[in-house]
Design a protein around this nucleic acid. Structure first.
Lengths: 346, 346
DNA sequence: AATAGAGACTTTACCGGTTCAGTAGGGGGT
DNA sequence: ACCCCCTACTGAACCGGTAAAGTCTCTATT
């Protein structure tokens, strides 16, 4: 990409116009001491008149801050497009970045190794000042890589998964437990869960919590769990196989790990001639607008994904400015009952 | 954001290890003539051994290419998250950027003025080498801004909207016409369209084409059109009001401008006790996985959004490397009939 | 034998900032 | 009147590359 002969205005022009050296302009724009109020004012006026803003490229090269935050996402593109989660998360992140005139460098990667290489090259090339890490797996290589590089990073995921990195997480275990208790309280004793990708850490956490929660029920209940790839198709397949059994062997309630799968489940139930919620109750996760667009509307474990993204970004700025590792829980998803859950019909 | 005392390896280290000057290293890495094959090889080996890659920041500052592409999106975050379109589009763009080791700088903005300011600051600060422009409106200020700045840009939208910029577009008019003819061929004579945001250029194009297509029908048909904000809620409201009328005044087929609204419409029909497609046919746009997850499945005007994004990115590289303005149509969306369209019941 | 020209590098001057060691000028203390 | 210190600012080096001009060595030409 070649440059165009646009007459660039640089710090030198501003300095000349204000009648000072470029060092002075730099001091002014970085709010550092050593300038009189009058000079400072003059410099800002000159900059305003010329429409100048410091070049972040030059700043970066000169060794100060890097005002770009990296986000590598490793999921097949088609899935990504569908999951309302990501875009909303990104918009939350953005909302905080904008306040600090930072930008988001986004990259879709195909695997964790690629992601590690990317982070390394971003960081070593000073392209980013820090990074957000999502979708943790067991034995994730990223915390070690971040540590080795000294890359400021925030991990989105439970501390048990994020290898000592500063983490921001929702308490999935508690949420799963709440979901199970809610369904049990409605009278359900045959409860299934259509989980997300088995390789993801938070899926394991939810799986364990679900088992635990069902085991704790009194009177005892029957449980089913499957893993999927989060896609609607997988959700549909899982639902079909769950609902294919005759009534005593068929769950009366199904919990899904995202809302796409729940939507798919709803349609499978309809296709099989089962009424929701009379014959089977459905409970979605990651409540997005989608859950209110179906008929019946979907009950969901909902949380504020936008706010979540914002929290993550804020936390990252903390890490960048030197805060030690920490663990930041965000509010647990709350149960939002709608039309898809009800007591099982006798 | 402060730098960490990571021992950076720079071009100097590579030069020293290969026993040449840094100029030589630069020549080698930019595949420029003037080096013997042996030296070139030695340099690459040294770089590989040290794990060095040129710093894109320094490169940018030195005045050569900027390997970042900008994309500012102006839509409310909640909507964005829902529209499968964007993430899929972005993933298509990425797929081409990755091949050329470029990155995507993404920013959500709240208005066109903000976007113009952003583009200006990105470009003047040499943060981007070019930009993708989406969501054109009437009298859009962006083509003029891009022209004034000399910013290489590709406009996603019909040439009539994009003010002389190189454009990549789908032929919405033809697609709308095809949709109308298809419904008419099924026997529908009362056809409604739930359009997108009225301010967007492609919405006007579709609106005009719809009018035109309906007028051309023989025997004559009755038509309705509304504008929305693309949200599911708006789609639901529009559908409700369309279906509230008694049969002779009620459309027997509805076309939606995206799939979210079609899903919402489907649920409204169910809620009102109308059968799809027996009582009313529904046709979605921007076919995503969502359309196959409902019951009945949604017929849709589908196109390859991922490929569209890739085309846009490729075109942008063309513009960046100096190609003059051009107009690049991509394949027209094709009708994909599924379960939500059928002849109206007598 | 002198000269030109090409090939293979090296040197050097930027790019647009930051940073830090100076330095000029003014006020206070003795 | 002299020294010292503080404030306010300047100048130059540097960040990690690129690019244009310069140097040196060889070979081909006249």
């Amino acid at each position: 990409m070649t440059a165009t002969p646009t007459p660039r205005v640089t710090i030198k022009d501003v300095a000349a116009r204000a009648g000072v050296s470029k060092g002075a302009v730099s001091l002014a724009f970085n709010r550092k001491p050593g300038l009189s109020e009058a000079t400072r004012e003059r410099i800002f006026r000159a900059a305003r008149e010329l429409g100048w803003a410091p070049s972040s490229t030059a700043r970066t090269l000169a060794g100060s801050r890097v005002d770009v935050v990296g986000l590598a996402v490793c999921r097949p593109a088609r899935l990504l497009g569908l999951e309302p989660f990501y875009m909303e998360f990104v918009s939350g992140v953005e909302s905080v970045l904008v306040e600090r005139s930072c930008s988001l460098l986004l990259r879709l990667v195909r695997g964790q190794d690629e992601e590690v290489r990317l982070l390394e090259s971003w960081w070593r090339g000073r392209q980013i000042g820090g990074s957000i890490l999502v979708d943790f797996r067991a034995d994730d290589p990223r915390p070690a890589a971040a540590g080795r590089l000294g890359l400021p990073a925030v991990a989105v995921g439970h501390p048990s998964l994020t290898g000592g990195l500063t983490s921001v997480w929702t308490d999935d275990a508690t949420a799963v437990t709440e979901a199970v208790r809610y369904l049990a309280a409605l009278g359900h004793r045959r409860i299934a869960r259509v989980g997300g990708a088995a390789a993801l850490g938070h899926t394991s956490i939810r799986t364990a919590a679900f088992d635990e929660a069902v085991r704790a029920l009194e009177p005892p209940a029957r449980a089913w769990q499957t893993a999927t790839d989060f896609s609607g198709d997988a959700g549909a397949r899982a639902t079909r196989s769950l609902l294919a059994a005759a009534p005593p062997e068929r769950p009366t309630a199904i919990v899904y790990d995202n809302d796409i799968m729940a939507v798919a489940g709803l349609s499978v139930a309809a296709e099989m001639g089962l009424r929701v919620p009379a014959d089977v109750s459905l409970l979605a996760w990651d409540d997005s607008q989608l859950c209110r667009l179906t008929h019946p509307t979907l009950s969901a474990m909902s949380h504020d994904v936008h706010g979540f993204g914002a929290d993550v970004a804020r936390t990252l700025f903390g890490v960048i400015s030197g805060e030690g590792p920490g663990s930041h829980p965000v509010p647990t998803p709350v149960l939002t009952p709608r039309g898809s859950t009800a007591p099982p019909k006798a």
